[in-house]
Design a protein around this nucleic acid. Structure first.
Lengths: 189, 189
DNA sequence: ACGGTAGCGGACGCCGGCGTCCGTTTAGCT
DNA sequence: AGCTAAACGGACGCCGGCGTCCGCTACCGT
């Protein structure tokens, strides 16, 4: 991943910035979005002021932190779009997106809800949705995906998958796997 | 609904108690579980102390407040169990439970997660699950429900349904309806 | 009607997260 | 090495929710 905008940052500042993002990704994935900013700062080994200086709001931080995850979503969509068997690709998209969600508490929020000031995120999201739509179209053509499927159904499934709570991360992943299987059955013609 | 335990309460106290429960039900349904206790007290028109005197913890309040809702769940299960067509009953159970969940933010938490000190709730929950299991068994016998269906699948679906977020209550209900339809398709043999 | 007591609720202190200021440190240039 | 400005982070004040205490109110039994 190449550096983004911060060309005019001092080396130590840039280093801290990176450490903050790492910490944010870790803690968002583990605990979800409802984490005090200070906790992130503590894990990153910086003071609260530094955190606030780089990312004035939690949304700004989340937007930046999840860019890579959103990119992962897009990659999944495009990889599976490349599968010669569209239905298999469609199934794998669901499985992989659900698992990604289960591993990352909070990415659900990022992907599902439209972010206010995250232009990059929104663009990434649109591209991903485009790929998914194309994949669905092809899967329909093979007759294996229900003709009345709409993309919103997939969004619905992902949002619902995000609602799966469990004590451990493993339990969450297991639940998501079962749920993905259920969703696929529902979508099969 | 007959009075429960509070035989030794003065008339005004019992009145307040009832008003608190009403307020709690309303606000839990509308906003979910993450509401300050004081908000409930305010809506009930009582002081914080009164609320805390009757219900020392939020869970105690929730347990009491949702008893009626849990009863509604049980009623739904038993009514649909009585349907001569088990598969139709099974479908309607899913639809009705999902809608109930959509109308009541927070009942998901009450039903899904095991409550610590809510013996009544737990018993009610077990009875409901019993009815659902029996209904599922019958629906399987007709060959319309997948043979590999397990009750946990239904729990999974309900938990997922609880994760559906939306701005308005109407949007939430609409989403739940679509989701219920999806779930039914997934369960059909 | 009246006394005793169950019940009430405003007010208090505590805690934890938030966002910001300012004295100190340190990178980077000459 | 020395200087300057960028960057840091501890400390501060604010706010909102929490749970409890105590002086006042009003219900109920006689």
């Amino acid at each position: 991943m190449a550096d983004d905008l911060p060309h005019k940052l001092r080396s130590d500042a840039l280093d801290n910035r990176e450490r903050i993002l790492d910490a944010a990704r870790a803690v968002f994935a583990a605990e979800g979005m409802d984490v005090p900013m200070r906790e992130i700062a503590r894990r990153a080994g910086v003071g609260p002021a530094t955190l606030y200086r780089r990312f004035p709001t939690k949304q700004a931080l989340a937007a930046e932190a999840f860019t890579e995850q959103m990119h992962a979503c897009r990659t999944i969509a495009e990889e599976e779009l490349a599968d010669p068997d569209p239905w298999r690709g469609f199934c794998r998209v669901i499985e992989r997106l659900c698992e990604l969600q289960a591993r990352n508490r909070g990415i659900t929020t990022a992907f599902t809800s439209t972010f206010p000031h995250a232009i990059d995120l929104a663009a990434e999201r649109e591209r991903t949705l485009g790929s998914l739509a194309e994949l669905a179209r092809r899967a329909k053509d093979t007759g294996q995906l229900r003709p009345d499927f709409v993309l919103d159904d997939l969004i619905l499934v992902l949002m619902a998958n995000g609602g799966l709570h469990a004590a451990s991360a493993d339990a969450r992943i297991a639940a998501s796997r079962r749920f993905a299987a259920l969703a696929i059955r529902a979508f099969r013609a």
